[in-house]
């Protein structure tokens, strides 16, 4: 069964139709990229999947269960992890504490008033951070972390819930090229290892074409292409509205 099924999603803001009739599905372990020009509706789409926005019409199903319009925190409990375009972490906490918060929430222990956090779920958090290569940073406050490291912390937080689906909004924005490839390779490994479906938006075409199993192209709220990287790259309509002549990408990239 598909991890996520999206059916005829619609959203209007005032007079603007931001998303119209978008349908797609993701299988466990699959890396699916959502690309398109600025303002094409990518973020709107994303925000409807995890409940930050309520769609005007259409259905979102997670492992067969209807989650349309559910609040983000309920969607999370059903197994959807999320990273943000502009990183959102708890700046006044250490890296470890950030992950501990996700674990404590997962185990429904947030309302406890007595036992200090320092003694709860610390080793589980450390194990997760080690998997992401962040073990050495565990004790540092998130407020002073480099941007690329924050992206990794976000990934660790998103994974704390053993999600079935990861939603990553521009996961490598603001990272150096080398870091981008590293992070996406790691994500792909973990996704395959644990059977997590990953949906990501991305502006770096090198990242998209080397890590996506499949690509969706959105323009003015509508899906205009869907398929394997090579086919999407060759699609004339995609070239016209989005990719351009291809001068702005590294030469000779294609699939992996």
């Amino acid at each position: 069964m598909a991890t996520l099924e999206v059916e005829a999603l619609e959203k209007r803001f005032g007079g603007v139709q931001a998303v119209r009739g978008v349908s797609f599905a993701i299988r466990p372990g699959e890396m699916l990229a959502l690309i398109g020009p600025n303002g094409a509706g990518k973020s709107t789409c994303f925000n409807m999947l995890n409940g930050q926005l309520r769609p005007d019409a259409g259905r979102v199903r997670l492992k067969g269960r209807d989650i349309t319009g559910m609040a983000p925190r309920r969607v999370w409990r059903l197994g959807v992890g999320r990273t943000f375009q502009i990183t959102a972490t708890f700046g006044s906490m250490t890296v470890r504490e950030n992950v501990q918060m996700a674990l404590l929430s997962h185990h429904r222990r947030l309302m406890r008033l007595w036992r200090p956090v320092a003694r709860m779920d610390a080793s589980a958090a450390d194990a997760l951070l080690a998997r992401l290569g962040m073990a050495e940073q565990a004790g540092r406050p998130c407020g002073i972390l480099a941007y690329g490291d924050l992206k990794r912390v976000e990934l660790a937080i998103a994974l704390a819930n053993d999600p079935a689906l990861l939603l990553m909004d521009e996961p490598t924005a603001g990272m150096a090229p080398q870091e981008r490839v590293g992070l996406m390779a790691l994500t792909a490994d973990i996704a395959r290892e644990r059977g997590i479906a990953v949906l990501f938006t991305e502006h770096d075409m090198d990242v998209v074409f080397s890590h996506a199993d499949r690509i969706l192209v959105l323009d003015r709220g509508t899906l205009i292409a869907e398929g394997a990287p090579a086919a999407v790259r060759a699609d004339p309509r995609v070239r016209e509205v989005y990719l351009g002549s291809g001068n702005m990408m590294s030469p000779g990239q294609g699939g992996h």
């Binding site: 398109g36 020009p37 521009e170 924005a173 990719l243 702005m248």
Partner: peptide
């Protein structure tokens, strides 16, 4: 100036 822009716009 090119950060986060579609390749067409970057051109």
């Amino acid at each position: 100036p090119s950060e986060g822009l579609a390749p067409v716009v970057v051109e």
